[in-house]
Write a protein that binds this DNA or RNA. Structure first.
Lengths: 217, 217
DNA sequence: TATATAAATTAGACATGGCTAATTTATATA
DNA sequence: TATATAAATTAGCCATGTCTAATTTATATA
């Protein structure tokens, strides 16, 4: 089938394609997979031969339908395993990703479907990213930022925009999880920071940067 | 760390060491991992350098303490994942192994321990093989054969000695699982076959070969 | 527009793990 | 014991995926 390496390239191309607008260049891919540009050229040839991507200088790299489907499958696996690790094994938000990075490549026909069923058909992973359905459908992304919530209103955390470890650990420290209720108590016009209540009791002030990295409903 | 390939060699050596008595030769390993003998020689050199095995013509290949520990870890992973796949994802007995073959190589400090806890500290995998504890301890193997049960007695399936797909599928067909009750109704002296009752109602005759492949308590 | 800089590509090398063919070493058996 | 056969080992080659060092092609900028 396809090697682990090939799959990681496909994922990288998919990820780059999400940040729409820019053409996907060999250099961008090289950066994304932390590899030398020369290696990327080789892989582009290989994946092109397999009809998983197309490439020309004008349009850059694009996933073919076949390649897109494959990438989605892997992402589906990844996100389902993340849910498993968090909910069933009790891993914290910030470690889940690296383990799922390995688990996503495990293959067996029914595995993703069975896992999905076992987990109760979750729609979002612990980072709030939508989990592709087996038919390739993607649940719509929730996109209200915490910073857009009016003073006095309460909302619920649905996703994170920033998935860096520092951020996730900060959230952990604040006991903020998917589903956590947050009430906006005050907005400081001066620097965009906001005063919030997390859960029942805890009150704190967070920066504008923070408020723009949390997605809520 | 250690590559997937190296890990599979270690497992193979461990497996061969179980079938005690015989010296572990390069050829035996070649057969076990389905690879050319020349390749085995290369790997023996590599693993020897890493102090995971020792090798000389007189004693054959032996796992060092370090190698043994590693092999046990992998087997622990394998068997825990098998339990997961069977009990949580509802896979049948005969497919569980091939998926676990991939899952066993996933690494993360606490993964096996968390999985073990999640599964309720199972002692045996779906094939009845003991699951190594995190300290390397192995629960004792149950070793009464169905063929050794007296006429009139009832016993409970605890493991299989034969893990071939044909056998496992035959068991599936007979609705025999770990935990299934079997009553020995009669023994045919002529060819060693026995007449048994599986569960509440179903009665059938099975061969001596069959009766010597099922472990019970 | 000339030229410096950045991006893309080619060429050649390395490590891993596997293979075939040839050779050496053991083991049996006539 | 001579010899056939099997096992172990060596040598050399292949594919995958990576790298560095050119070289070519684009893109900017003085």
């Amino acid at each position: 089938m396809h090697s682990l390496t090939e799959e990681n390239y496909l994922k990288a191309v998919y990820r780059l394609a999400q940040k729409a607008g820019t053409k996907i260049t060999p250099t961008a891919i090289a950066e994304e997979v932390s590899v030398n540009a020369a290696s990327v050229i080789d892989m582009i040839k290989k994946l092109s031969e397999k009809k998983l991507i197309s490439y020309d200088k004008v349009n850059g790299v694009k996933l073919t339908d076949k390649g897109n489907k494959l990438a989605l499958d892997i992402i589906r696996n990844h996100r389902l395993w993340e849910v498993f690790l968090l909910e069933k094994l009790g891993y914290s938000w910030d470690v889940v990703h690296e383990i799922a990075e390995q688990l996503e490549h495990i293959k067996h026909d029914e595995l993703a479907d069975r896992l999905e069923k076992f987990l109760g058909f979750p729609e979002y992973d612990p980072h709030g990213d939508p989990i592709p359905k087996s038919n390739g459908e993607l649940p719509a992304l929730v996109n209200t930022l915490l910073s857009e919530i009016e003073v006095g209103k309460t909302c619920r955390v649905s996703a994170v925009k920033d998935t860096s470890t520092v951020f996730l650990q900060y959230l952990l420290q604040l006991s903020v999880n998917i589903g956590t209720k947050i009430k906006v108590l005050d907005k400081i016009a001066y620097d965009g920071s906001i005063f919030i209540q997390i859960g029942k009791d805890f009150k704190t002030t967070v920066s504008q940067k923070f408020a723009e990295s949390l997605l809520v409903t």
